[in-house]
Design a binder for these strands. Sequence first.
DNA 1: CGTGGCCCCTGTGGGC
DNA 2: TGCCCACAGGGGCCAC
Length: 295
Amino acid sequence: MPELPEVERIRQSLSPGLIGKRVVGATLHRRDVLVVPGDPAGGFSRQRSGESKPRRYEARHLLVGTTVVDVQRLGKELAIVGETESGPGRSVLLVRLGMTGQLVLLGPGARASKRDHIHATLRLEGGGRLLFRDPRRFGGLRAFENLESLREHWSGLGPDALGVTGPVLRKRLGGSARAIKAALLDQRVIAGVGNIYADEALFESGIAPGRAAGSLSEGEASKLASAIRAILARAIEAGGSSIRDYLDAGGVAGMAQTLHRVYGRGGLACQRCGGELAQILLAQRTTVFCPACQR
DNA sequence: CGTGGCCCCTGTGGGC
DNA sequence: TGCCCACAGGGGCCAC
């Protein structure tokens, strides 16, 4: 569901009500949405096959006993940082939302509007709750013991797309022969761009999605990087794209979908030249572009 | 090694 | 109305 702008909106809507709150209890309704340190997979999401032993997890993995001091974001990942009163102990709960994941922050006594597919509940001092809901379960939670191990995990991702520059982008694309759009979707190249904003940024910068990533000139990489920054920043300002079910942590929808110029418009007229927008499948994702304007 | 293909899961909307 | 297929803001894994 969410790309960088939506996740940033969730971070912003979550922070004021969550930071400073102590987590007094938690319930994990599905254990397979949580990965804890030492799990055999070492990965993020649940294992697809093999009923390996039920994971042992502890309350502290869901931040119980800590006070939330920060909510950080890199790309599409959120990290809720908790701190224990006694000493420098920290716990980090990383949240990945996948296609349909939501975080819902409820005040004391408030009821969730959708109560199915809630996989984890954190109870906050004062009676509030933080829910993790994800119908398709492509998202998940991962616990880290400290900020250092979070940093190590995040070092596997590329730089945050909101601040990417032309030279950095060009360097990270290297001489890759794969399509530029596929490279943009690879979170190890840059973090935060997904299917919507990749198409929008390529349209804005006039680059065809099938171009070899390594074939971009300095000028093209620079135009693409500034298009990415501008489009993501605009989308954040507009509250994120609410197409199907995206809502921020307070249940508020965004309006950024009204800014889309190619996503979801295959077969319609290009807003720049009037020609017909092409729709193809690239890297297993629907891709819309203007064959005349994008080269 | 880099890359494309397939799979994970549930819900929804369009075509018949 | 109902059924079935295609598709959906993502990403891990495994053959080539």
